[in-house]
Design a protein around this nucleic acid. Structure first.
Lengths: 169, 169
DNA sequence: GCGGACATGTAAGAAGTTACATGATTAG
DNA sequence: CTAATCATGTAACTTCTTACATGTCCGC
């Protein structure tokens, strides 16, 4: 369901074509809920069929501009309000659980790489924090999501160091 | 691929039937990589077809006991060593991004619930930390995974409070 | 006129979920 | 004998990925 509401949510913010949406997905949701072109066009068809979005304009090259309908906006608000249920899978923790099946060197190497990876991710987000202008209240939620990323990667770094220490590197 | 290696990894630790594996998934991997019965039996068939596991015993009620083959163990070690690539999707952050589409009260309520949810999860893990015996080195990686959970939920709580403060609750 | 960006669509397959279906064994 | 547990399998459907396919418009 998430792709459905990601698409609907972007359209609720402002109308656009599948092509537009695809670039919006790449720019703003790549690290949160990536979508492929193939998936997106399929979802747009289904959203329109269900009356949650509608075509508000048609342009050159078969371009179809969609906008969220009132019913779509209501469905979005409802989805935002209700609790989520599914346990997110973690390929990282799965590896940690299975690490005893590899040799001790592989384990140490694993956490060393986790640390480095998290450091790269963190500096990438710190760069975004530095270069963006966060005065605008429209960006407030983007700032909150960014804060999540900053804290998350910081935690990852500390955890990976803790694990290495515990394993006696 | 993850389910494949989760299954293989559990079998590499000790042999078992599909039914056994299912309970092991429920007990030890429910929060990391859940698997349904339907998925598991299918995967066992494919793993055997590919020579990564083999039937080492057959018992009552059609019970088939599988064990990892040498080729399977090698494949597992290789998978544990190479880097993962896919970005994990985050339904939580997706909601945060779309929250401006709901009213301000919904946003505050969202973070309040995030905080409570994380608090429950954290105390659940703290309970596990208290009740388990962590002296055994076989449990070391379980302890490291647990530490991840503890730090993760602590971070979530702090983040949710930070967000509420920022939104002016 | 031609290359690059614009624009949409479909097909095949892997992975995951839910539900259905069937039967054997054992403990009480 | 009968209910619970053991035990495996299949079918239908959704979601996601990768690749293929096709055509238009604009700037140089």
């Amino acid at each position: 369901m998430s792709l459905r509401f990601a698409t609907l949510g972007l359209l609720a913010r402002s109308p656009g074509s599948g092509y537009d949406l695809l670039r919006r997905f790449e720019r703003s949701m790549a690290n949160v809920w990536p979508a492929t072109q193939s998936q997106l066009y399929g979802e747009l068809g289904r959203l329109e069929r269900d009356g949650l979005i509608e075509i508000v304009d048609e342009g050159a090259r078969g371009r179809k501009v969609y906008d969220a309908t009132e019913s779509g906006r209501a469905a979005l608000r409802e989805w935002l309000t209700k609790e989520s249920d599914t346990t997110p899978r973690s390929a990282r923790l799965l590896r940690v659980f299975l690490l005893p099946e590899a040799d001790p060197d592989a384990a140490r190497e694993f956490f060393r790489r986790e640390e480095q990876h998290a450091e790269r991710d963190l500096s990438h987000l710190e760069e975004i924090l530095r270069t963006n202008d966060w005065a605008d209240t429209d960006h407030d939620f983007g700032r909150i999501a960014l804060e999540y990323g900053l804290r998350f990667h910081t935690m990852e770094i500390e955890w990976a160091r803790w694990a290495q220490k515990r394993l006696g590197t």
